[in-house]
Amino acid sequence: MIAKKKKREIFRFALLLLLFVAVGFALYKHYSDDNKQTLIGEPAPNFKLKNINDKTVELQQSKGKVTLVNFWGSWCEPCKREMPLLQSMYSKYHNRGFEILSVNSQESNLAVKNYAQKYHLSFPVLLDLENQAGRAYNVYKLPASFLIDSNGKVVEGFEGELNKKQLEGWILEGLK
């Protein structure tokens, strides 16, 4: 009788463990890079966010320009490493029709303003306090970047730290 009860407990435990693994895998697949790929070729989800100077900025204002929407956090090490590259590419290509909308995920205006000053950012730095833009772009890991063509369509999406070759290639292809 005890052996039968023990087997039943082991079976229940194994079944519960299998259920947790299945749910975890389903969540992982739902929030993985595959979701970013569903935006490619689609109109970019519009958003209206305040910048660090309390001015409302709307993505649609960038129509006609090649725009990089970059999601980041001040605590994110890859984001910190990526910022000087973004600033460099913005300085180099802004006059040719390239724009960056830098979207901070859920941090205070003061923290973001200090970060922008520290990295000497001259492109628009936006506050996504309620993560509305992040959800629209399926962003669950930082940094995440999306290149939007001059017609307002998402043409590239990447989760992780961009490198110079990758970003400059995107920009030059978009500006053609």
Rank of each mutant, 00 (worst) to 15 (best):
H94L: 08
Y28T: 01
E173G: 11
A111D: 12
S62L: 02
K118E: 14
V57D: 00
V57N: 00
G41P: 08
E130V: 14
S91N: 11
V57C: 03
A3P: 00
V125Q: 02
V21T: 06
K80A: 08
G160R: 14
I10K: 15
M89I: 06
T38K: 14
S150Q: 12
L101C: 15
P45K: 10
L86R: 00
I148Q: 01
L19I: 03
N70D: 12
K113V: 15
N70P: 12
Y115F: 15
N138H: 14
V112I: 09
F98L: 07
E42H: 07
K63I: 07
V23N: 05
F20S: 13
S108G: 15
T56Y: 13
L17Y: 11
I10E: 13
V139A: 09
C76F: 06
T56G: 06
I171C: 03
F98W: 07
Q166H: 02
L27G: 04
D54V: 00
V139S: 09
A144S: 12
E168I: 12
R81Q: 08
K29Y: 07
V103Q: 10
D54H: 06
A133W: 02
A136Q: 08
W170V: 04
V155Q: 05
F146V: 04
C76V: 02
L15N: 06
S32Y: 03
Y31R: 05
G157D: 03
C79H: 12
A136E: 03
S62N: 04
E9V: 10
S150K: 14
L86V: 01
E168S: 05
F25E: 11
R8E: 11
L68P: 02
R96E: 08
K36Q: 15
K6T: 09
K5H: 04
A144R: 05
Q37C: 11
L175Q: 07
A14W: 04
G64V: 07
K65S: 15
L19E: 12
Q37F: 14
F11Q: 08
V23F: 03
F47N: 00
A26L: 08
Y137P: 02
Y90D: 06
G97I: 00
K141E: 15
E58Y: 07
E156D: 09
S62R: 06
K92R: 07
L15A: 06
F123D: 07
V155C: 06
P143L: 12
F13E: 13
N51P: 01
L15P: 05
V23T: 12
N131G: 15
K63V: 02
K6C: 03
L49H: 00
W72F: 11
Y28A: 09
E159Y: 07
N35M: 14
Y28D: 03
A22H: 08
L39H: 08
S105A: 13
L126A: 07
M89W: 05
L27S: 02
W72D: 01
